[in-house]
Amino acid sequence: MNQQSPPGTGGAPLLAMTDIERVFGGERKLFGGHNPAVHAVQGVSLDVKRGETLGVVGESGCGKSTLARLVTGLDHPTAGTITFEGQDLGALSRKDRKALASKVQYVFQDPVASLNPRKTIRSILEAPLKHLTRLDADGREKRLADMLQAVNLSPEFLERYPHEFSGGQAQRIGIARALAAKPELIVLDEPVSALDVSVQAQVLNLLDDLKAQFGLTYIFISHDLSVVESVSDRVAVMYFGRLAEVGPAREVFRAPLHPYTDLLMRSAPAPGRHNLMSEDAAAELPDPYNPPKGCAFAARCGQATSLCLAEKPAPDAAKGTDDAHFAACHHPLAPAEAVKANVAPDTT
């Protein structure tokens, strides 16, 4: 796509991704030819505004975790640029990893696996303070205490080892570690999916409080639509490495444009819901080594036409009522269709 990023986000974004791409494999072989390549993320342009929570939803293999690693500098895009406060993230992380780490932090999916089993909580939490800040020993001690208080853990936990903690407590430690160097953006990669539901609620509420308290910006990645809906201001739905739909959370969930979003929503089980939407068993993700020419979702889509099979829809092929609501779909769903007609003069 030629456009910079979907318009309507307003103001200078904190983080801007422009047409980023991450290809795995594809190295040259010893005897000619190339190894097969997989596009984990492709053609993703997305802005994150300061102070918002951007939810990223998608199923396994859709590239959402790769996206998270790209944003935190743990991995680098093979094409496209990511800028943080106007600075190129790739250049920033190559030049000074610590500068980036003190601005962008990451909370991992598996809280226990993200803590080194042979380190005490103190040494785990002190690491970012030692390496990313200029605090002296007293300053660090004070910050440690503040952090523990922020995540509701008692100070006596500092001398213990990770295996002594439950999943919920370990995730609080993970969050405290991310907070330690006072970052501006925190990428939360499935932060609650490994937790029990009662603990999940505690952590979600904690994240909400911390965001208000420290003026944080979140990228919240999850496969769970209801969780994403409850925390996000804006939502990006990913499918097969590309953005399927982006828009204000409420709009996306109220009137999804992309049939995939609709499928996700109707597949999600909810208390009191008896009939889940179910597709045919043949409906599988396309082969990443042999990606389809047209829309990746076409094979599973009820509305697919020959156009969908032949041509990839632009990320903003369809627009919703809200100016910031886009979907990569040739044939967006009906309610939006009607709405689209009303705002037709605005669409390009």
Binding site: V199, A201, N205, S226, R250, A268, P271
Partner: peptide, 16 residues
């Protein structure tokens, strides 16, 4: 304590 799709306003009620 579980968020429900379609009710984003509801603050989930954690079990302490």
């Amino acid at each position: 304590c579980v968020p429900v799709l379609g009710q984003p306003e509801r603050r989930v009620d954690a079990i302490e």
